[in-house]
C-alpha cells in the first residue's frame, strides 16, 4: 500500500493543485514511497479500542456571543489581492 506510482503522484498533485511536470513524477513517486514505507511501521502498533486524538486540548469549544464585531474593512481585505476590481477579487473566468 505504500507503493506510490507515477499515476498516484499525478492524482495527488492534481488534488493538491500543484502542477508537477511529467519528468518529476518518477522521482517524487520514489521519494513519497520511501517516506510512506517508513510510515508503515505504525502498523506494528496495536490501536484497537484507542480513541483517536485530534488535539492536545481536551476541553470543549468556547462559544462567542452573536454580535457584529468585525467586517466593514474592504480595503484591508482587498489590499493584498493580486487583482481586485470594483471591490471584488478578480480571477480568470470560471465556466460552470
Amino acid at each position: 500500500m505504500s507503493d506510490i506510482d507515477k499515476a498516484t503522484v499525478a492524482k495527488i498533485a492534481r488534488l493538491s493543485r500543484i502542477k508537477i511536470e511529467e519528468d518529476r513524477l518518477e522521482g517524487l513517486a520514489g521519494e513519497l514511497s520511501n517516506i510512506m514505507g517508513w510510515i508503515e511501521q505504525l502498523n506494528e502498533v496495536d490501536t484497537d479500542n484507542i480513541t483517536p486524538m485530534a488535539s492536545p486540548v481536551d476541553t470543549k469549544l468556547r462559544w462567542r456571543a452573536d454580535e457584529v464585531s468585525d467586517g466593514d474593512k474592504r480595503d484591508a481585505v482587498l489590499i493584498n489581492a493580486p487583482q481586485g476590481e470594483y471591490g471584488f477579487f478578480a480571477v480568470p473566468k470560471v465556466i460552470e
Partner: peptide, 30 residues
C-alpha cells in the same frame, strides 16, 4: 512544502484515511 502537501493529501484521501490519518491519531493518543 510540496512534498508535505502531497503526503498530507495522500493520507487524507479516500480509502487511506483510516489506514493513515486515523491510525496516526490513535498512536498519538498512545
Amino acid at each position: 512544502v510540496q512534498r508535505r502537501i502531497m503526503i498530507g493529501t495522500y493520507v487524507l484521501s479516500a480509502g487511506y484515511y483510516d489506514a493513515y490519518y486515523l491510525k496516526a491519531q490513535k498512536v498519538r493518543q498512545l
